[in-house]
Design a protein around this nucleic acid. Sequence first.
RNA 1: GGGCCCAUCGUCUAUCGGCUAGGACGGGACCCUCACACGGUCCAGGGCCAGGUUCAAUUCCUGGUGGGCCCACCA
Length: 774
Amino acid sequence: MELTAKAWSKSLESEMLQRWQREPHPERKGKTLTIDTPPPYPSGRPWHIGAAAHYAQIDMIARASRLLGWNVRFPIGIDRNGVPVEMYTEKKLGISLHTTPREQFVAACRTALDDLEAEMLSIMKTMGLSGDFAHVYRTDSPEYRSRTQATFIDLWKRGLIYEDSRLNNWCPGCMTTVSDNEVGYKEIPTFLNHVEFRVKETGQQITIATTRPELLCTAALVVFNPRDERYHSLEGKTALVPFYNLEIPIISHPIADPAFGSGLMYMSRSAGDLNAVRFLREMGIPYDVCITEEGRMNDKAGPLVGLSVRKARERISDELRKLGVLAKEEQINHQTPVCERSKHEIEYIAMPEYYLKQVEFLPVLKQYAQEMGFHPEAHRQILLDWIAAVTMDWPISRRRFYATEIPIWYCAACRHPHLPTPGSYVQPWKDTAPFAACTKCGNDRFVGEDRTFDTWMDSSISPLVVTGYFTDKGLHRKLAATVVRPQAKDIIRTWLFYSLLRCHQLTGKRAFARAWIMGYGVDEKGEKMSKSKGNVIDPIPILEKYGADQFRFWCAQETSLGSDFRCSEDRIVGAGKFLTKLWNTVRFIAPFQSKEPAAVRPLDQWILNELASLVKQCKAGYDDLNFFVPATAIRTFLWNVFAPHYLELAKVRAYRGDAAAIQTLHTCLRALLQLLSPITPFITDYLHRELYGSPVTGQPFPKPPAARKLPFTTDQLLQLDSMIWKAKKDRGLSLKAPVALLTVPAAFASIEQELVETHGVQQVARGEPAVQLA
RNA sequence: GGGCCCAUCGUCUAUCGGCUAGGACGGGACCCUCACACGGUCCAGGGCCAGGUUCAAUUCCUGGUGGGCCCACCA
């Protein structure tokens, strides 16, 4: 065979891809492992290099599992529902969801998604993902959406869904209710306004500090802490709200912090934060929102009506200043709740929304979180912490367009809800109701629901979709116990949590055997990549420049499982050298062929011992789905032990045609290629075919050679070689220069021949290691 | 404010409480030695701080500091 080139060429990768397309992975006999591949979300260009790295590693899960003997199902899906594409479309086309006809807007989103999706799929293919590209599923397909709807209908019938109007997180930008885990916090500078109220009964002046003066129009109470003795005399009195001249009671309640401001707070019926939401609920005070869905003041705000919340805040401060009741304005940084999607400041508005019960399922979810496997183990805690923090049911309805529709029609007369039979995809906002008459009042006119689902309602059933729950219950039962969920760390509280919840509600079982959690790809300074920072690295030019295997090897050896990893082009370049090293090692070994059986010499046994330990390390790494372990172990073996020491010492024998040396070289090489194949499938498959005439895939996991005790250790041998090289180097001699006298301990007697031949030793003596040059 | 995780050369990491803390990337010097200059050889460079346990601490404990993440949150 001919390996004339001096290095592996990434152009061979497309050749290999075509080859693989012609010969798909053979079904194996063993048990089946299903990967619940995270369907990536096409939210804009470029696709994040960290995401590409993530999928490269998921392919390593697939390939490593096959190498370990599993039959692997590796579906490929794309998540296409929800706000990100709507925002992308609004920005790209300069249109607004709220002013564009729904049909038209949905079509524009679909076009955008198709383009972005094509690019992601092409990247996945280029990287050599061994997934099922023939059956890509899309979460916005009528088929998938019909399943989301079917599960909703199921849960509805079982009484797990209810509608309620309660104060909830509202994003004025997205114009929808959002759930707690879509809310983030951002430090925003604002003013803490010290506003003077008067006590009606005594005329006494009291000061109240607030960041939300624009909510004064709905002021309900003034509160002080019962432990705060300064204000005991105010209990039961009445406060006069400036500007609006409202009369509100003063009460004591522990919610007020004596150390904050003056120790007095006012509570608005239009809650300014979650704490207030809870307080109102606890006190049984009906809410009375003074903010509109667009984030403007409504008519309750009197003269402020129509102003944005922010403008209203400035305006009321002006008014209070004019009245002489604004004692102080302090600039503070405020941890402000913002929408994680659109970054708008969250307001608390009550809208009727559907809720899915989750609180009562927390104990079983906790149990699942404790039972299932986690790679790495440490990340289990993130899920447990989240489960412990959940206090409310999940609001699942959204007032958006590009998402799965809630499958309900209401009787036009009595508003009674009607749900269709599960199975087909329905769009109540445009479809005619599939009912003859209202089951309650007999009326024959219906109004379709126009709200959609939170997208996690769709993605949380992916473990069921990929195991055939909706198409083949028998298959599902067979596959369900061995599902592996790979995903990023940041969506533990959403995707992982909701999947466990929903699958439990639908099947009564735990969705996953194991979860594999990867860290974030950060930039080379260690900072999070974000489009706003402009430090997002596009994977396409990287893959074009360096090829898939180089990228994959970099991914594997960059960081241990679960930690964040820095994306630095320099280090990707560095990873490529390994492929060249491997290539040239093969280039050296390939020409040597020997069929006759031969007994190994002690030197051969030494490297076989090392190989045995390598095989065990790789097995442990692959079992833990931690590719850092095999990648670094293989690299160290090849570069620090096998090539510089064994290869050099066995070289002369190999040239001579020594069968034991040649067979040992091939034993090591073959095992190396197989052990490495999950990480760098292109080069290993190419070389395995060239040398051994068969694909590297489909081989069983390499067996560790039988190890035998030797009189010298690896460290001793490495140090001996190094000592000789250093001696020559110090004298400015070539490494081929002869050694006049080499003194070695008796332990090396069995490999003396190789030492002599390799280092050009003229005479050998026994004793502590020493080199004497001519 | 509460919780979780982490802390080793510039970077990524190794090290059952015990040899001079090992390797890789990057840096420097020399060498184109017949698989490989995407190579070889050599060099420089590190245990966050303060206590404690111990014959012995990078390793175990406590506190601090510094990161990361999560939750709550100043009305």
